[in-house]
Deep mutational scan, measured.
Amino acid sequence: MGSVRTNRYSIVSSEEDGMKLATMAVANGFGNGKSKVHTRQQCRSRFVKKDGHCNVQFINVGEKGQRYLADIFTTCVDIRWRWMLVIFCLAFVLSWLFFGCVFWLIALLHGDLDTDYKDDDDKSKVSKACVSEVNSFTAAFLFSIETQTTIGYGFRCVTDECPIAVFMVVFQSIVGCIIDAFIIGAVMAKMAKPKKRNETLVFSHNAVIAMRDGKLCLMWRVGNLRKSHLVEAHVRAQLLKSRITSEGEYIPLDQIDINVGFDSGIDRIFLVSPITIVHEIDEDSPLYDLSKQDIDNADFEIVVILEGMVEATAMTTQCRSSYLANEILWGHRYEPVLFEEKHYYKVDYSRFHKTYEVPNTPLCSARDLAEKKYILSNANSFCYENEVALTSKEEEEDSENGVPESTSTDSPPGIDLHNQASVPLEPRPLRRESEIGSRR
C-alpha cells in the first residue's frame, strides 16, 4: 500500500517518465508532432483561472445545437444578457408577425380586404367582416399587437362572423401568456443567479507553507467582502497533476483530494472575517514527500473551492481559484488583518494578500521532518523571529508614515537576534492585533 500511495502522490514527473511517455506515443502511432509532453521546463496551462473560470474549450460535440435547444431554459439562463435581450425582442416580434399574417390571411380569404370602410357607412358590411377595420397587412399586424398586449384601442375587434378568427384570438392570448411567463422566468432566474456573489468572495493571491502546531501546513486565505453571511460555508481543495499509471496509461489531469478537515468538520467555516484555511501535510497528503526545492521545480495546480448558500436567496454559490506551484510561498505567513478595537473588531483588507517571511522554516519535506531528519529550532526562537518579522513590518510602515526611528523597538546594537533566540524570552503579545485562523 505504501508503494502504491507514493506512486499515486508523486508530484514532480521525472525525466524517465517523460521519455517513457514519448516512447509510448511513438510506439502507439501518436508521434505526429502534435502531442505535447509536459516536462519541468514546460509548465501546463492553468486549468482553473484565478477568477474561477475553467480554462476549457469543448470541440467536436455531436448534436450540440439539439442538446442546447432541448434544455432551452438553461440555455437562456446561461447566455449573455445581450443575447437574452435579442431573444426577448424576437420572441414578441415574431409572435406578433405570425398572428398578424394569420389574421391577414383570414381577412384575405373572407374577402374583407376588398371592402373600403372609410367611404361605406353600411354597418351590415362591417358585421360581415371577420375582424372589423382590418383591410391590410398593417392593420392585421396592429390588431395582433393589440390582442397579445391587451391594449385594446377599440377600432379593431373580432366579430362572430368567422369562428376561426375567434379561435385565433383565444389562441394568441394563451401563447402570449406562455411567452411572458417564459421570458420573465428566465430573466428573473438569470438575475437571481448567485454567480455575481463570487465577486465579493476573495482568495489570497498566494498560498503559503509554514509551520503550525509543530507541523508543516499548506495555507491559503479566504474572505467575504459583504456583511451578509454565506450560510453553510465549506471549503474543498484538489491537486491536479499528470501521472502515468503502473500499466503505462497517461492521465493528463489526475485529481487528488486535499484534506482540509472534512473528517473532523473544520472544513465548515464561519466566514465573517478572513480565515486562513489549513491543510496539514501528513502522510496522507500529496505534498508529504515534497521539499522546498521540489515545490520550486514541480508542475501541478491546486484548485480551491468555497461553497455556501447566499443568505438573501438561499441559492448555492461556488467560488473557485487555483494556485500553481510557483504561487506557493515556502516559509511565509499571512499578515494579520483582524484588529481588536474598543467595542468592535476591524478588518483591514489592505493586508489581505500580504505575507511575511518566517525565518528558520524547515526546507525539507514533511516526511523528513516526521522522521527527525531535520532538527527544528527552539520553539522560543521560532516565536521570537516570528515577532521580529512582524515588528520589522510595523517599523517599515512607521518610517513610511514619517514616525521617528527613535520610537521604534530596535534591538541594541551589536546583538545578533538569531543568537539571542536560544535565550528564554518573556511572551510578547501583539500590541493591538490578533489573527483569527482556522485551528486544527
Score class of each variant (00 low, 15 high):
G2C: 03
N7H: 12
Y9E: 15
Y9P: 15
S10L: 05
V12K: 11
V12L: 02
V12A: 15
S13C: 09
S13Y: 07
E15I: 03
E15M: 06
K20M: 10
K20C: 09
K20Q: 12
K20R: 13
L21E: 13
V26W: 04
V26P: 15
V26S: 14
N28F: 03
G29Q: 10
G33C: 11
G33D: 14
V37M: 07
V37K: 14
H38N: 12
T39Q: 10
R40E: 15
Q41S: 10
C43H: 09
R44Y: 09
R46S: 01
R46F: 01
V48F: 10
K49F: 03
K49N: 07
K50F: 01
G52N: 00
V56P: 02
Q57H: 08
Q57Y: 06
F58P: 12
F58K: 15
I59H: 14
N60D: 09
N60R: 13
V61I: 10
V61D: 15
V61N: 15
E63W: 15
E63K: 15
G65R: 13
L69I: 10
L69C: 14
D71E: 14
I72M: 11
I72R: 15
T74Y: 10
T75G: 07
T75M: 07
V77H: 08
W81Q: 03
W81T: 05
R82P: 12
M84P: 13
L85T: 05
V86K: 02
I87N: 15
F88D: 11
C89D: 02
L90P: 01
L90S: 10
A91H: 09
F92I: 15
L94K: 02
L94Q: 02
W96N: 03
F98H: 00
F98N: 02
G100K: 01
G100M: 00
V102W: 10
F103C: 03
F103H: 06
W104P: 00
I106Q: 06
A107N: 05
A107G: 07
L108K: 12
H110E: 11
H110S: 03
G111T: 05
D112Q: 02
D112T: 02
D112A: 01
D114K: 04
Y117V: 00
D119G: 00
D119V: 01
D119M: 01
D120E: 00
D121F: 15
D122F: 03
V126T: 11
V126W: 07
K128E: 04
A129M: 15
C130W: 09
S132C: 02
S132K: 04
E133W: 02
V134P: 01
N135E: 11
N135Q: 14
S136P: 02
F137G: 04
F137N: 02
F137R: 02
F137Y: 14
A139T: 12
A139F: 02
F141V: 06
L142Y: 01
S144M: 00
T147A: 03
Q148R: 03
T149H: 09
Y153L: 04
Y153D: 03
Y153T: 09
Y153A: 06
G154E: 02
R156H: 02
C162F: 01
I164T: 06
V169P: 01
V169Q: 03
V170C: 04
V170A: 03
F171C: 04
S173P: 03
I174Y: 06
V175T: 07
I178Q: 03
I179C: 10
D180S: 15
A181D: 03
A181K: 09
A181G: 03
A181N: 08
A181T: 15
F182K: 10
I183Q: 10
I183P: 08
I184E: 03
G185V: 03
G185K: 02
A186I: 07
A186K: 12
M188V: 14
A189G: 13
K190S: 14
A192F: 13
A192I: 14
P194I: 03
K195D: 09
K196D: 14
R197D: 14
R197C: 14
N198R: 13
N198Q: 14
E199Q: 10
T200A: 13
T200I: 07
L201S: 07
V202P: 04
F203V: 04
F203Q: 02
F203P: 02
F203D: 00
S204V: 02
H205Q: 14
H205K: 15
A207S: 07
V208Y: 01
I209L: 05
I209N: 00
A210Q: 06
A210Y: 06
M211C: 13
M211A: 13
R212G: 02
D213W: 09
G214V: 00
G214W: 05
K215F: 03
M219K: 01
W220C: 06
V222A: 04
V222D: 01
V222R: 00
N224D: 11
L225H: 11
R226H: 13
R226K: 13
K227T: 11
S228V: 12
S228K: 12
S228Q: 13
S228M: 14
V231N: 04
A237S: 09
Q238K: 09
L239W: 08
L240D: 00
S242M: 15
S242R: 08
I244N: 15
I244Q: 12
T245K: 08
S246Y: 04
S246G: 12
G248L: 04
G248W: 03
E249M: 08
Y250G: 15
Y250H: 15
L253M: 14
D254Y: 04
I256P: 00
D257R: 05
D257P: 11
N259Q: 13
N259A: 07
V260E: 00
V260G: 00
G261I: 08
F262R: 07
F262P: 06
S264Y: 10
S264G: 05
S264D: 15
D267P: 06
R268N: 08
I269M: 10
L271P: 04
L271V: 09
L271Y: 07
L271H: 05
L271R: 03
T276N: 07
I277H: 01
V278C: 11
H279S: 01
I281T: 01
I281E: 01
E283C: 10
E283L: 06
S285Y: 01
P286G: 01
Y288M: 01
Y288C: 01
Y288Q: 00
Y288S: 00
Y288E: 00
D289L: 06
D289N: 04
K292W: 05
D296A: 06
N297C: 10
D299G: 06
I305S: 12
I305W: 11
I305V: 12
L306Y: 08
E307M: 04
G308R: 04
M309C: 14
M309N: 10
M309S: 12
V310S: 13
A312N: 06
T313P: 11
T316S: 12
Q318E: 07
Q318R: 05
C319H: 15
R320D: 02
S321V: 13
S322W: 01
S322E: 01
Y323I: 08
L324H: 11
L324R: 12
I328N: 01
L329S: 04
R333Q: 15
R333K: 12
Y334T: 00
E335C: 05
P336T: 07
V337C: 10
E340G: 05
E340H: 05
E340C: 06
E341T: 08
H343D: 08
Y345L: 15
K346L: 04
K346T: 04
V347R: 00
D348R: 00
D348Q: 01
Y349A: 11
S350E: 14
F352L: 06
H353Y: 03
K354R: 09
K354D: 14
K354Q: 14
Y356K: 15
Y356A: 15
Y356V: 15
E357N: 06
V358T: 06
V358M: 12
P359R: 05
P359Q: 14
P359I: 06
N360L: 05
L363D: 14
A366H: 00
A366F: 00
R367P: 00
D368K: 08
L369A: 02
E371Y: 03
E371L: 06
Y374P: 12
L376W: 08
S377D: 13
A379E: 08
A379Y: 06
N380H: 09
F382T: 11
C383P: 02
C383N: 15
N386R: 11
E387I: 02
V388H: 15
L390A: 14
T391S: 12
K393P: 14
E394P: 04
E395L: 07
E396L: 06
E397S: 13
S399H: 09
S399R: 10
S399I: 12
G402C: 09
E405L: 09
E405P: 07
E405D: 11
S406V: 10
S408G: 09
S408L: 10
S408M: 13
T409A: 11
D410G: 09
P412G: 12
P413K: 10
P413V: 10
G414I: 09
D416E: 04
L417I: 09
N419C: 13
Q420A: 10
A421F: 07
V423H: 10
L425N: 12
E426Y: 05
P429N: 10
P429R: 12
R432Q: 15
E433H: 06
E435M: 13
I436A: 13
I436C: 13
I436S: 15
